[in-house]
């Protein structure tokens, strides 16, 4: 079996290179969400370049579209496009690799970037699956700051109303947004209580831990009659001490010195993962 944790460090390095080369990117949220995406694409979802047109493929919507760099790295590792091309062209003049997901690229279903759209769109996808009696599953990843958008909660209600057990939402609960801690900007605790009061099955985990991620997604597949939310408690900037849990790294381009340190930290993380 592939060592997903080790892979995630390589993909984080790809993200750093993209951001330095493209002179911009949402680095902190890329790092926190990486393990969720790797688990989904390499372990959970039946999505690959070969089955992109298969009506039974699982569906994924990157609701926190600003973390597109992490998605690009994962899609490249899945073979949708060469990583070298992404790193070279990201954000550059005329590029297809723009700063938010765009479905002109293979592997991307829905355009995003404006927060609070992913979950309601997934409700539609999950409803269609029920209507057509298909057994694909629908996944979305949201930011925790994103949950202040009212549209999220409209989708939450609809998913419960229609008993969408084929829908699994993930909250990248890194406790930070642009202006600081989520609890200072617009308090969210307790996520667990909020979602369960809306009738959702709630699983709370360490979202940077592959054992817990796998167990949570596996459990979600067994739930009948209700949608599942995974509250993935993560570390923003995960992988390098200089970025971890610092709001300032929401959107930042590392300088040469920071770049060297981050790459060193990521390499050390990979080494440790290989010897776990």
């Amino acid at each position: 079996m592939q060592n997903l944790k080790a892979l995630s460090y390589d993909l984080r390095k790809n993200v750093i290179d993209m951001i330095v080369e493209g002179k911009g990117g949402h680095i902190g949220g890329d790092m926190s969400v990486m393990d969720i995406l790797v688990e989904l694409y390499f372990e959970q979802m039946n999505i690959s370049p070969e089955n992109m047109d298969d009506p039974d493929r699982d569906r994924f919507v990157m609701s926190k579209g600003h973390s597109v760099e992490a998605l690009y790295a994962v899609l490249a590792a899945k073979g949708f496009f060469p990583i070298e091309q992404v790193i070279k062209e990201f954000s550059k003049f005329g590029s297809k690799f723009i700063g938010h997901p765009n479905n002109k690229l293979p592997g991307i279903e829905m355009n995003s970037g404006s927060l609070g759209h992913g979950l309601p769109v997934c409700v539609g996808m999950a409803l269609a699956g029920k209507m057509d009696e298909r057994d694909y599953r629908v996944y979305t990843v949201m930011g925790d700051g994103e949950l202040a958008e009212g549209s999220v909660w409209e989708g939450v209600m609809a998913a419960h109303q229609y008993k969408l057990d084929n829908l699994c939402a993930v909250v990248d609960r890194n406790r930070l947004q642009i202006s600081g801690c989520t609890e200072d900007v617009m308090a969210h605790d307790s996520q667990e209580e909020r979602w369960s009061s809306f009738g959702w099955h709630v699983i709370s985990i360490n979202g940077n831990d592959y054992k817990e991620l796998k167990a949570a997604f596996d459990e979600a597949k067994t739930v009948k009659g209700a949608p599942t939310v995974i509250i993935a408690n993560t570390v923003k900037g995960c992988g390098s001490s200089i970025m971890e849990n610092k709001a300032g790294w929401h959107h930042k381009v590392p300088n040469a010195e920071e770049y060297a340190q981050i790459m060193k930290d990521l390499e050390a993380g990979k080494e440790a993962a290989l010897h776990e």
């Binding site: 927060l115 700051g145 994103e146 202040a148 958008e149 642009i178 202006s179």
Partner: peptide
């Protein structure tokens, strides 16, 4: 502001006049 005080260049206002500043989050 809606998690936009930095991009709006309004962080100095928020710091100087916290009682005249309302943060609503991403909403």
């Amino acid at each position: 502001c809606s998690d936009s005080r930095g991009s709006a260049s309004l962080a100095p206002f928020a710091n100087e006049y916290p009682k005249q500043f309302v943060e609503v989050g991403i909403a």
